[in-house]
């Protein structure tokens, strides 16, 4: 999941009348596996929701508490993805361009949030940011409360989304040709202008993809957030928690209704990401 090398080169090689065998077998297996593991189970959520009438469905997914949870989930995800976009770009830049001691170690650490279980992340972040925690004890006297507030949700989501932007931007930065930058400098552009007009446009598609991936991942996140969010209705309650809450009141239809809303949003986001990548690829093949 780390290096999203979607800026691929020659993809025009494969054609419908390819001499390569195994299309039917490979496609068949792919579809069968996807159906068994992903599609049929996901359809269960849609079918279960169908028990509700349309007004019931609408009332469930637009109840004030649910709407407040969307606001928090999407707001905190957006904020976390934005911070990750800027700092991810910075980290990728530093890792690609500058030598410094311990660089390999830092580079390896970037993937930690992929590998660390979310519950561990949640418990640890809470231990750090709670009022008596490592950082919390210094922040609290300043009036900054992180754990058990929406800010805590933001911190957790920033943690889990961190690798995405770095890992999408890194390969693109590595591929940028020095000649372009040199030419820009020759023509009198300052370093900042070169960045602004040469480098930034080149990494923008990758940056957007990384941002969208971090955003999509953050929306669904549960494990790390519940430990550090205060879980107060209307204030610090995330949407996945509401699904659990509904389940525990035996309201299966209500739970799946909210789940379906989240599923549809996830799928739309993914389509947008793939569309972006498709455009980037088209542009790069044209060039």
């Amino acid at each position: 999941m780390s290096n999203h090398k979607y800026h691929s080169g020659k993809h025009h090689s494969g054609k419908r009348h390819s001499v390569l065998p195994g299309f039917n077998l490979a496609l068949g297996f792919t579809l069968l596996y996807l159906s068994l593991i992903v599609l049929i189970p996901l359809s269960a959520a849609f079918i279960h929701t169908a028990q509700l009438t349309w007004p019931e469905f609408w009332n469930t997914v637009t109840a004030p508490r649910v709407v407040a949870s969307y606001r928090l989930t999407f707001g905190a995800s957006l904020a976390a993805a934005t911070v990750n976009a800027w700092f991810g770009l910075l980290v990728a830049w530093v890792l690609v361009r500058y030598p410094f001691p311990g660089k390999r170690l830092v580079d390896a650490l970037i993937d930690l949030p992929f590998a660390l279980p979310t519950s561990v992340a949640g418990i640890t972040l809470t231990a750090i940011y709670a009022g008596n925690g490592w950082l919390g004890q210094y922040l609290e006297p300043l009036g900054i409360r992180v754990a058990f507030t929406p800010a805590g949700v933001f911190v957790a989501l920033t943690f889990i989304g961190l690798p995405f932007v770095v890992r999408t931007v890194q390969p693109v930065l590595e591929d940028i040709e020095k000649e372009l930058e040199e030419a820009a400098a020759m023509l009198g552009a300052t370093r900042w202008q070169t960045f602004r007009y040469i480098i930034f446009p080149a990494v923008l598609p990758a940056l957007t993809t990384g941002f969208a991936l971090a955003f999509a991942r953050a929306i669904g996140e549960y494990g790390s957030v519940i430990f550090i969010a205060g879980n107060i209705p209307m204030v610090s309650e995330i949407t996945p928690l509401l699904i659990i809450t509904k389940l525990e009141q035996y309201d299966y239809a209500g739970a799946t209704a909210i789940a379906v809303v989240m599923l549809v949003i996830s799928f739309i986001l993914l389509l947008i990401i793939n569309l972006l990548q498709w455009q980037v690829r088209r542009r790069s093949t044209k060039a």
């Binding site: 991942r217 996830s266 993914l270 793939n274």
Partner: peptide, 23 residues
């Protein structure tokens, strides 16, 4: 098809568990 392959990755883990309970 590519989007469908990516889907499990952006589905909330809670929903992922829930669908198996439903089945």
């Amino acid at each position: 098809l590519t989007s469908l392959i990516d889907l499990p990755f952006s589905v909330s883990p809670v929903v992922a568990g829930l669908i198996y309970v439903l089945i």
